[in-house]
Design a protein around this nucleic acid. Structure first.
Length: 274
DNA sequence: CTCCAGGCTTTAG
DNA sequence: CTAAAGCATGGA
């Protein structure tokens, strides 16, 4: 069992997990058990340090983005002089952007559309329980996120049955395509070309493509615009645009290379009612 | 009852 | 090109 230790000021399990970038985690012990692809870890804060216990230290070091300096990122966030962003970067100082499995992100965010986080978590949990390979971590069983082949084999009826709603067809079509083609060619594309490519998958629109790029491909310049961002755009930035693609362009130009981090601080701040 | 949730597809103008 | 209807589900 590998154990990673990190400065808790810039690594808060709660902030990292409860900000909507990941849907597979459960409260456990002093912190949480977190599941990604076919792996698991136990993350908790004790004193001034946050610990990650797992079987694959390299995977979770990268997963939690521990090679990156978030002191610099929060400082840059505060430099814009936007009250909501400053509050988000201050109270959400322990937030980090995760580097998650790309295929898991594709399916998870297709499910997320026009949906709420508790229900998204439930749908994903039922999919994993039914189709994911069984594994063991810390003496307890869990299920890996299913392969695209397993998802494709289940078909639309299965997704309907476990409560995915109208997204059943999207999941069936996209899993069938990925099971047949794979996604290897996506990794080398530029940000713009990756987004265009993602938009060709059934059930993936602009917002979902940005989430997949940001959380699944490490494209930190992406800025997903959802209902919360649209609201804070109006209320905290005095924005008047209505088209989400234009709002996306506005924020990307404003924040540049690390727009994705700023998006998370803003999303966090708005949802926490800061 | 209506409204909303990390929106997308389809159709109409 | 933009605008709007339709879409499943569950909680507030």
């Amino acid at each position: 069992m590998a154990v990673i230790e990190y400065d808790a000021r810039y690594f808060s399990p709660r902030d990292v997990l409860e900000c909507g970038q990941i849907f597979r985690f459960v409260p456990f012990g002093e912190g949480y058990k977190v599941f990604s692809a076919d792996k698991a870890c136990y993350v908790y804060t004790r004193g001034n340090a946050t610990f990650v216990e797992c079987d694959d230290g390299d995977y979770f070091y990268n997963f939690f983005d521990l090679g990156r300096d978030y002191a610099a990122i929060t400082e840059r966030a505060k430099s814009f002089g936007v009250p909501l962003l400053t509050r988000g970067a201050s109270l959400g100082q322990g937030l980090r952007l995760l580097n998650q499995n790309a295929e898991e992100m594709i399916y998870s965010f297709i499910i997320s559309q026009n949906n709420n986080i508790p229900r998204i978590k439930g749908i994903i949990e039922r999919i994993c329980a039914a189709l994911g390979e069984e594994r063991t971590f810390m003496g307890e069983k869990y299920h890996a996120f299913p392969t695209s082949a397993a998802l494709a084999g289940a078909g639309a009826e299965f997704f309907k049955l476990i409560g995915a709603g109208y997204r059943d067809g999207y999941l069936a079509a996209t899993s069938a395509r990925i099971a047949a083609e794979g996604i290897d060619e996506l990794y080398d594309l530029s940000d713009d070309d990756l987004k265009k490519a993602l938009l060709t998958y059934t059930g993936v629109g602009p917002k979902v493509a940005d989430c997949i790029s940001l959380f699944g491909f490490g494209r930190r310049a992406c800025f997903p615009v959802d209902t919360w961002i649209e609201k804070l755009y109006r209320e905290d930035f005095g924005g008047t645009l209505k088209n989400r693609d234009r709002i996306n362009r506005y924020f990307c130009e404003l924040f540049g290379e690390d727009a994705g981090y700023m998006q998370q601080y803003l999303f966090y701040a708005k949802r926490e009612g800061l």
